[in-house]
Write a protein that binds this DNA or RNA. Structure first.
Lengths: 339, 339
DNA sequence: GATGCCAGTGTTATCGTCAACATTACCACG
DNA sequence: CGTGGTAATGTTGACGATAACACTGGCATC
């Protein structure tokens, strides 16, 4: 039933009141050296650890944060979560992890639970626009930091990347290699991150003679395969595919293999969001990578700062994206090596 | 500062006492239909959610579990964590995730924090033997379930696989294909899981004319490469390598590629612990797979059962292992196709 | 019609901790 | 020598919820 010594046990053992023990533990008032020593010994001997829950009831701080993501199993979120946990641990906080599978209902359900749980603050990678979630957090004055996804006019702080610029740089890289017909595999319209990336990608085309076709409605590895099939049937056939998230990238790669298309000899493939290098049999994909770990850390720091001084205007932290060049993108196949 | 309506706010609005509200919320006593309706409306209008922290102080149940693993970033643990979270969520529990990086100190530190946090129970994938952790949990009467790793004579319940049998079946598979010189890449001696797997692997050799060489002290992808190098230099050269965890497997695969050895044509490679299929560009490795997700779910169910009736003798749940046959193992290279 | 039971509600105390306010004792100062 | 200040401790009550118990009134039972 989980019994622990209480502050009163310590007090009794040291022959003082619980208040004095509290002062020793929290350095919240003057205590004579003799008493301090007695109390500390009693704490040691009993293995006393203050109950954060009782403390939380009184002080309204539980030293607990929550991280809400769509699926911890997605390596981007796994890495993010590790960053969150490390930063929280450094500051003596614990982290609850919640998976929503992109469901706004789950998002709300968790937020309610967490609010009831008296977490000090929440890191949220929003499903869709997270309107309800944000409203709820605001109503409850629950500190909330948004991660990865841009929310327009949010009254909450946010840590993200300039994902539009990232998409643009991938496209510029492709254009620079000579690609002129490019297919873009995107999520359904309405998912902000995907929309931003599409926009960035299209921006890169302005003033060029290249052409891009955007396939929407792609949610998973399997639907990515369909996009690839349609893409391979096009005339003129795209010489490069840009997949806007890591699962789509994998899906595209597998579909290309299945259709016998060599990457990058026959067709180039670029992705968004890196896969954890330690797990890959061979690091191969050229991608625009978000600094997931750092994003987690930065989110925690921002969140804890806001918890301690519940201030002020929302902050926006923009982290740099990196174009990680590996082997999956080459020049277009029929680009006669000129000169 | 995170303000929420309290049970008293609801009571006032409904014109009853907080006790009556509590009865409505928890169905813990008779309430007339009229009053119940009033209270429910008040709850609705105020958006009242009971404070689990206050509730926890009184009832000693916080509906919070913790999962301690070495590194959530290892896909085995990621999947395990997802199973834990799903099962917990089904039962309205929240989960704290803690990373120890195999450090016993961290393990203890977290356990202390968690106990102070009044979690209801802990799921632990132990670093080493976890003696201190187990002792602490026992002293605090903190429900604890051990996952994945076998602890001899543990007074705690445990969910794991028959990892020895798994290793044996991989070896039998290799022997069946004709391999007679097999290298085994293992972790340092003293890590129970690895030791068990080694033992199982060697058991499979009894009564056969095959020979195995065990390389210990391999902790990561990088050290795996060293093992592979030594292995390639051996005379007679092993025709198959069996790596006892997923990182070693990846490391071995990369090292083999680097040395120009084709898998499985020149040398076969078998692994332990699967990699998440959705992330692989091509599912290729033949491995002994532990049901990570199910292990997480089973652990939660066991833990919650023990929390509600703090009983009895420890339970042991053994989950089945699966030999997932894919492409990385073939017959030994110079096995002349006879007949 | 007294007795007992039970549905429906309220009262009080408590979980472990800490904020706020006492209380004591000693010392400095004019 | 009284006044006031401060260091060191104690006392009380509150955080939000619920367990344990107490009360009220209606109805069945003999």
């Amino acid at each position: 039933m989980h019994v622990r010594p209480t502050i009163r046990d310590v007090a009794a053992k040291a022959g003082v009141t619980d208040m004095t023990v509290s002062r020793v533990v929290n350095r919240s008032g003057p205590v004579s050296d003799a008493v301090r020593a007695r109390v500390e010994r009693a704490i040691e001997e009993l293995g006393y650890v203050p109950s954060r829950i009782a403390r939380g009831l009184r002080s309204r701080r539980t030293h607990t944060l929550a991280l809400i993501v769509s699926d911890i199993t997605n390596p981007f979120f796994t890495t993010l979560a590790r960053g969150v946990e490390d930063a929280a641990s450094d500051r003596e906080h614990l982290v609850m992890v919640c998976n929503t599978d992109e469901s706004e209902e789950e998002e709300i359900r968790y937020l309610e639970m967490l609010s009831g749980q008296n977490v000090d603050g929440v890191l949220l990678v929003p499903a869709k626009g997270a309107e309800q979630a944000r409203a709820l957090a605001k109503r409850r004055q629950l500190p909330l930091v948004i991660l990865e996804r841009r929310i327009p006019e949010s009254e909450h702080s946010i840590v993200h990347c300039d994902t539009r610029a990232g998409a643009r740089s991938m496209m510029q890289y492709l254009l620079g290699l000579g690609h002129r017909e490019i297919a873009i595999l995107a999520s359904p319209i309405g998912i902000a991150t995907s929309d931003d990336r599409v926009q960035g990608a299209l921006e890169a085309l302005e003033g060029s003679d290249a052409n891009a076709t955007v396939f929407h409605e792609l949610l998973s590895r399997d639907t990515a395969a369909k996009g690839v099939e349609r893409c391979l049937g096009m005339v003129p056939r795209p010489t490069a595919i840009f997949a806007l998230n890591n699962l789509l990238t994998i899906g595209a790669l597998r579909a290309l293999r299945m259709h016998g298309a060599r990457v990058p000899e026959d067709i180039s493939l670029g992705g968004f969001d890196d896969l954890p290098e330690p797990l890959l049999e061979r690091p191969f994909l050229t991608v625009v990578a978000q600094p997931a770990y750092e994003m987690g850390r930065a989110g925690v720091e921002l969140l804890i700062a806001e918890i301690s001084k519940p201030t002020s205007a929302p902050t926006e932290i923009v982290l740099p994206l990196e174009l990680v060049i590996r082997g999956s993108i080459g020049p277009p196949p029929n680009s006669a090596p000129e000169g």
